[in-house]
Simulated scan of single mutants.
Amino acid sequence: MNVTFFNDQIHTVVTHNPFIVERWISDIENSHHRRLHRLIVGLDVEWRPNRIRNSIENPAATLQLCVGHRCLIFQLLHASHFPQLLKDFLGNPNYTFVGVKIDGDVKKLMKDHGLEVAKAVDLGSLAEENGRMELRYAGLKIFAREVLGKEVEKRTPVRWSEWDNVCLTPAQNY
């Protein structure tokens, strides 16, 4: 499916099929073969929020990866297995996985599914290192406005939605 982000078309694959994940990774590595030593991958993880205080946290439901104008939403909870190619991709020390407050997502992937990310960079920390102290604890909405000049909002109903459903809503796919 194509998702429109302002004037850009983002080709997005939503799947729980490990073979489709392998194909997406292979396509990414083939199309970016000249820069695999410095590949940058956006990473985010979603899960069903707990609505009851002090209850056990739900496991990571989706892994979202983006390279350029191509994204993958892998429905972890519905997959029959995690392909070795995905484990190798996440564990490749030449690839830099970036995200807002990514450390929590990386820990959750490891804790819930044993998926290790070799090299993760938090965009807030990176901004701070580059003199943008005000972005140290910024969320995605502020980053989009400050860095891209785009007004983006991830509405609360989407953030608090049922990420473990087999069929994601159109809003969850954006």
Score class of each variant (00 low, 15 high):
Asn94Arg: 11
Lys150Glu: 00
Asp44His: 07
Lys87Tyr: 02
Phe5Ile: 14
Val166Glu: 15
Asn7Ile: 01
Glu29Asp: 10
Ala79Phe: 01
Gly42Glu: 10
Gln64Asp: 01
Leu77Pro: 02
Val166Tyr: 11
Ile52Pro: 02
Val45Tyr: 12
Met1Val: 06
Arg53Asp: 00
Lys141Gly: 04
Leu123Glu: 02
Trp163Tyr: 00
Asn58Tyr: 10
Cys71Met: 11
Trp47Ile: 00
Val117Ile: 11
Gly91Arg: 04
Leu76His: 04
Arg23Ser: 13
Phe19Val: 00
Met110Ile: 03
Tyr174Phe: 13
Glu162Thr: 14
Ala144Arg: 07
Asp105Val: 07
Ile25Cys: 07
Val100Trp: 10
Ser125Ala: 14
Gly149Leu: 01
Val158Asp: 07
Arg159Gln: 13
Glu151Thr: 00
Asn92Gln: 09
Glu146Leu: 05
Met110Ser: 13
Asn30Glu: 12
Lys101Phe: 11
Val45Trp: 13
Ala60Trp: 04
Glu128Thr: 10
Ala61His: 03
Asn50Thr: 00
Ala138Leu: 06
Tyr137Cys: 12
Pro93Gly: 07
Gly149Ala: 00
Tyr174Lys: 15
Lys154Trp: 02
His69Ile: 03
Pro18Gly: 02
Val166Gln: 14
Cys167Ala: 13
His69Glu: 13
Glu57Gln: 15
Ile20Gly: 02
Asp105Thr: 08
Asp103Thr: 15
Phe97Leu: 12
Leu77Asp: 02
Trp24Val: 01
Thr12Ser: 09
Tyr95Trp: 11
Lys141Ile: 03
Asn58Gln: 12
Ala61Arg: 04
Thr169Trp: 03
Cys66Gln: 15
Val158Ile: 15
Ser161Arg: 05
Leu168Ile: 06
Met1Tyr: 11
Asp27Ile: 08
Leu115Ser: 04
Lys119Asn: 14
Ile28Leu: 09
Phe89Ile: 08
Ile20Arg: 04
His78Ile: 03
Val100Met: 09
Thr156Asn: 08
Thr62Ile: 15
Arg35Ile: 10
Leu123Gln: 04
Ser125Gln: 14
Ala60Tyr: 04
Asn2Gly: 07
Lys108Asp: 01
Arg136Val: 01
Leu63Pro: 03
Val3Thr: 14
Lys87Gly: 05
Gln75Pro: 02
Ser161Glu: 05
Phe89Arg: 11
Leu36His: 10
Asn50His: 04
Trp160Ile: 03
His16Pro: 00
Ala79Ser: 06
Thr62Tyr: 08
Val121Thr: 11
Glu134Lys: 12
Cys71Pro: 03
Asn130Gly: 08
Met1Thr: 05
Val67Arg: 08
Trp163Val: 07
His32Tyr: 14
Ile40Asn: 14
Gln172Val: 07
Val45Cys: 15
Glu29His: 11
Lys141Arg: 14
Lys107Asn: 05
His11Met: 09
Ala120Glu: 00
Gly91Asp: 05
Phe143Leu: 09
His37Glu: 13
Phe74Ala: 00
Asp27Trp: 06
Gly114Gln: 07
Tyr95Ser: 03
Ile25Val: 12
Leu39His: 09
Arg155Ala: 05
Thr15Met: 02
Ser31Val: 05
Ala144Cys: 13
Lys108Phe: 04
Gly104Cys: 08
Met110Tyr: 14
Leu168Ser: 08
Leu135His: 01
Asn7Gly: 02
Cys66Gly: 07
Asn17Tyr: 02
Phe5Asp: 12
Gln64Phe: 01
Arg53Ser: 04
Leu43Gln: 06
Arg132Gln: 13
Lys150Cys: 01
Lys101Tyr: 12
His113Val: 12
Phe74Asn: 01
Leu39Val: 00
Thr62Gln: 09
Pro93Tyr: 07
